[in-house]
């Protein structure tokens, strides 16, 4: 299990979180510490053990294909930091 090559800048970028240099140093140190601790799991023999994604063994929980009312446009946009013409406005996306 690798943790020493933990690159906080790279990961913070993936998570889209801008960090100040101070934060970067502090979080980087603390996360190194935590990653060192979770290395503990290496001790476990997990050969043949199924991964567990859910706490209860349900399957096939589905809904019928039925249309339910949507919410009005005003309600959809009510919390938008910026909106115009019924759209959520964002800085120009360069595709």
């Amino acid at each position: 299990m690798a943790d020493t090559d933990f690159d906080i800048q790279y990961v913070a970028n993936l998570a889209r979180i801008a960090l100040t240099p101070d934060e970067e140093a502090k979080l980087g140190y603390q996360l190194g510490d935590i990653l060192g601790y979770v290395k503990k799991l290496e001790e476990l023999d997990v050969t043949g053990v199924e991964p567990m994604a859910h706490a209860v063994p349900l399957a096939n929980v589905l809904r019928a294909d039925e249309v339910r009312p949507s919410i009005p446009q005003e309600a959809a946009l009510a919390n938008a930091p910026k909106q115009a013409n019924g759209l959520f406005i964002v800085p120009k996306i360069v595709e």
Binding site: D65, V67, P69, S70, I71, P72, Q73, A76, G86, F88
Partner: peptide, 22 residues
């Protein structure tokens, strides 16, 4: 389908923006 994948909004083309939403 009649409705969207994970909610009951209509699977419909051409509505006013942000009206087939929940």
């Amino acid at each position: 389908t009649k409705s969207k994948m994970f909610c009951g909004c209509a699977n419909q083309f051409g509505a006013e923006p942000n009206t087939n939403v929940c």
